[in-house]
Amino acid sequence: MERATVVVGYEDAELLDIACVTSTFSTARDVGADPAYAVTLLTPGARTITCRPGLRLEANGALEHHTATVDTLVVVGGLGSERAAADPVLLAHVRRLARDARRVASVCTGASVLAAAGLLDGRHATTHWRFAGDLARAHPAVHVDPDPIFVRDGRVATSAGVTSALDLALSFVDEDHGPVIARRVARALVTYLQRPGTQAQMSLHVAAPAPTDDVVRRVVDHVAEHLDADLGAAALADRAGVSERHLTRLFRAHLGRTPAEHVRRTRTEAAAALVATTDVPLARVASRCGFRSTETMRTAFLDAYGRTPSEHRRAFVTTS
């Protein structure tokens, strides 16, 4: 059964907010996500909306007429968000759909709509840094943080400006289908798999810079999609059909590191994304990402980020 995903739009919504969400979920279907996402754009009265820079976007249905169960509800932002947040009918239907949804989220100034609907009271939230102060002043019951790419607080998530919707949607794909599918989606979109954090924090690139050498490229792709497999130098060289020494020379020439260093880095970054964006127990994170134990993963985190997995999770994830 498909995961019903509803995106709420309105006049003067930001087109990129909508596209980042809808394209991420539709791409997940293309790369093997099962169950797939069924994405529906709803607007008040099923009206066609004008999005910046003047493009017209046709809705799939009327917000007020949608009665089917919603898995994920996403309210987008845009120049019209202030009017949307002041529309009592729109707010009532957002509250109605959010009541039974598994997840509720906003993009950019869509947070003001969730806040006006009372869905952010007592929660941590973010929005575009330019509008964070306005959100905090208008809704003092909301704990607004202008720094993170996105914030997860229980079943409610809020993201920063426009393209951060990609990061948020990718985290949902990872949560639903695991890191392999999430990486495939990110590669298809030619983007980064981001974890929540301030602009000064680390980000996870889902693939090494595309090496020109076919052997290195094949091995890099294999590593990214089989983190819990045997990725020792002998196994990788055997898969590539070259000697360990030659594979090491190729990796140093094209990536500036050995195969073992690349495997450790890829596993650590994948684990960091899981730790920061999910509540998966650390032992399971270690196993999924190919670490022999949580202690081995802990050492890798200390070397890479200067903090333990538990400290990393506390820094990036809030729960209600």
Rank of each mutant, 00 (worst) to 15 (best):
A92L: 02
V280P: 00
T69V: 03
V156G: 13
A85F: 03
E175T: 13
P140M: 10
G78N: 07
A235P: 00
G178M: 06
F301Q: 03
P140F: 10
E82R: 15
V142F: 10
F131N: 12
V39A: 04
T212N: 08
F316M: 12
R152A: 14
L204A: 09
F150G: 01
R155E: 15
L231K: 12
G110R: 11
D147N: 12
E11P: 11
A13K: 02
R218A: 15
L189V: 02
D279F: 04
V151L: 11
L274V: 07
D213R: 12
A273G: 07
A28M: 07
D213T: 09
D134G: 04
E295T: 15
V89L: 08
L119Q: 06
H65I: 00
A283D: 14
L302D: 12
P146F: 09
A101G: 07
P211K: 08
A59N: 05
A59W: 02
P196E: 14
V142Y: 10
V7N: 09
L247R: 11
A286L: 04
V70E: 04
V215W: 01
T22K: 01
L236Q: 09
A84N: 06
F291Y: 10
V317E: 10
L274M: 14
A33I: 08
S287K: 14
V275T: 15
P281T: 09
H177Y: 08
P53D: 11
E64G: 06
R96Y: 00
V89H: 02
H254S: 11
R265I: 08
G110F: 03
E261R: 15
L15D: 10
D87C: 09
A240C: 08
H262A: 07
L302W: 01
V31A: 05
R96P: 01
S106I: 13
H128P: 00
V173W: 01
Y305R: 09
A85H: 08
R103S: 08
R195N: 03
P196C: 10
R183P: 00
L282C: 04
T127Y: 05
A62S: 15
G32F: 05
E64V: 09
P196M: 11
R56G: 07
S310F: 01
D279W: 03
D221I: 00
A98R: 06
R152E: 13
L90Y: 04
G77R: 11
G61Y: 02
V280S: 05
